[in-house]
Write a protein that binds this DNA or RNA. Structure first.
Length: 473
DNA sequence: TGAAATGTTGGGGCG
DNA sequence: ACGCCCCAACATTTC
């Protein structure tokens, strides 16, 4: 009997369009699907609490799909290299496949393992399962990475369309004897106190859940995506981000599903919606490429002049922001949606981020850390790009002087207060017209909802003053 | 993928 | 009828 192939799953928790798995299946050799829990190797960006919740359920789903294909998912924890070596030995495997990751610490780890095992005579091959284009494949005319989104995306679109999705292997060869596996529960990925009830209502982790979300989006939301995506009270976005982060669905599958929907559903708005949505997938690509080329950006601003920006230390302000008790309804609604569901609407992410960075003058890294722990879609590339974009210190970033007014943003994108009332029920008696400035409504909220922690007009002037000082230095 | 300040225009009230 | 002022509506500039 031929020797088995180890297929190492990481953030590619799917059977369909999984290049590493497809290549293993093609060879008609026994396949040993494997997941190694090694959070220390991702430090300081090991999965946060919300991500661990998702991972637990996604691994459960993956294990079940593998069983339907006559296989299993072997779970191990500890050092990746040690566990791989143990398994190579005990299973007599000589080959390992995986799909590439792009976080700086993981690139270092994976290259080290790859060269060490190859030096010992093993076959180690990695594949692209996570991106439409590899970061080194897209560059500007002078051979450098793009730092502005629009030309980056144009260069991507000029390339040939992404390859067709690979079908899920229907049957996987099993080894004569399965190696030992950890019990998933022993990893204690789920919270011990039950703050996660809202998560179960909001999400179905796993490949099937991802496919369902994609189908719902192309069939029900894409035609009106261009306008609806900015309205947090409407289910107008795809909500695919956690599925994409864990690789329960890949960008090639999304690309083709969007193209097929556009071709088959001749509805008004479909083409515009498709174009706008794929642009967002493009931002995800852009974020990954930037992280690859500028690996210091999770910690440090891309633009050096921001390294001495006069940030404040404001423990009380940070706490109020985290708890959704700033007194600005849209900000608080967003932060509570995040806490209850592990997700926040993108329009609101921009508003809460602007509030933390510009109104409170708290370093964007503090916001990035909180999002990292609380988001089910926490992704180092996207999180880094998003926060540096808001702070104005990143690639193609919003200028620092572009300061969101939380009241105006609310009036513009949540005019009736549907979203705010859902997450801030204390405000139910405030009339629509004043829902975003309840302090002016005359409704007595004493002891129920806080007054604004800071006056926005004053905060805006202060932020602009801080910026002018930075420029002088 | 802003907001506020400042500038311009034009309609209408009114002496 | 005419000039003047007010101010909304819109455009441009600035942060």
């Amino acid at each position: 009997m031929s020797t088995p192939i180890l297929v190492l799953f990481r953030r590619d928790l799917r059977l369909e369009d999984n290049p590493a798995l497809a290549e293993a299946a093609r060879q008609k050799r026994p396949v040993i699907p494997l997941y190694i829990w090694a959070p220390d190797e991702e430090a300081p960006w090991a999965p946060g609490a919300a991500s661990r919740w998702w991972l637990h359920h996604s691994l459960t789903a993956l294990s079940e799909s593998l069983e339907r294909a006559g296989s299993r998912l072997i779970l191990r924890s500890g050092s990746s290299e040690e566990e791989l070596r143990k398994l190579l030995k005990s299973t007599k495997a000589d080959t390992i496949y995986w799909n590439r990751l792009y976080d700086p610490a993981l690139i270092r780890r994976d290259s080290r393992i790859k060269s060490a095992l190859r030096a010992d005579g093993y076959t180690v091959k990695s594949f692209n399962g996570a991106l439409l284009n590899e970061p080194w494949e897209i560059q500007n005319k002078s051979g450098n990475p793009f730092q502005v989104f629009t030309p980056f995306w144009k260069a991507c679109l000029a390339k040939t369309d992404p390859a067709e999705s690979l079908p899920a292997p229907r049957k996987l060869g099993a080894p004569a004897k399965w190696p030992a596996s950890d019990g998933l529960k022993t990893w204690k990925l789920l919270p011990t106190i039950d703050w996660d009830t809202g998560f179960y209502e909001a999400w179905t982790p796993g490949e099937r859940g991802g496919r369902k979300a994609l189908d719902r989006f192309t069939d029900e939301a894409m035609a009106s995506y261009h306008g609806d995506r900015d309205i947090p009270g409407v289910h107008g976005t795809s909500r695919l981000s956690p599925h994409l982060h864990f690789g329960e669905i890949g960008p090639r599958q999304v690309w083709h599903a969007v193209q097929e929907a556009t071709a088959s559903q001749r509805v008004k708005g479909m083409v515009k919606g498709a174009e706008t949505y794929l642009r967002e997938v493009g931002w995800r690509e852009f974020a990954h490429h930037l992280l690859f080329h500028f690996p210091h950006t999770p910690e440090k601003p891309l633009r050096g002049e921001f390294s001495d920006f006069p940030w404040r230390t404001d423990t009380k302000g940070l706490k109020a922001w985290q708890k959704g008790l700033t007194g600005y309804p849209l900000v608080d609604a967003g932060m509570r949606e995040l806490w209850h569901t592990g997700w926040m609407h993108n329009r609101v992410r921009m508003v809460v981020a602007s509030f933390l960075v510009k109104d409170l003058l708290i370093p964007w890294q503090e916001g990035a850390k909180w999002f990292w722990d609380t988001l089910v879609d926490a992704d180092l590339a996207n999180n880094t790009l998003g926060w540096q974009w808001t702070a104005g210190c990143g690639a193609d970033a919003a200028p620092f002087f572009r300061i969101f007014n939380p009241v105006l943003q609310g009036e513009k994108f949540d005019p009736k207060g549907d979203y705010v009332r859902k997450w801030v029920p204390e405000l139910k008696d405030v009339p629509d017209k004043l829902i975003h400035k309840p302090w002016a409504s005359g409704v007595n909220l004493k002891g129920r909802y806080p007054a604004p922690v800071i006056d926005h007009a004053m905060a805006r002037d202060r932020a602009l003053e801080a910026l002018s000082q930075t420029k002088k230095i």
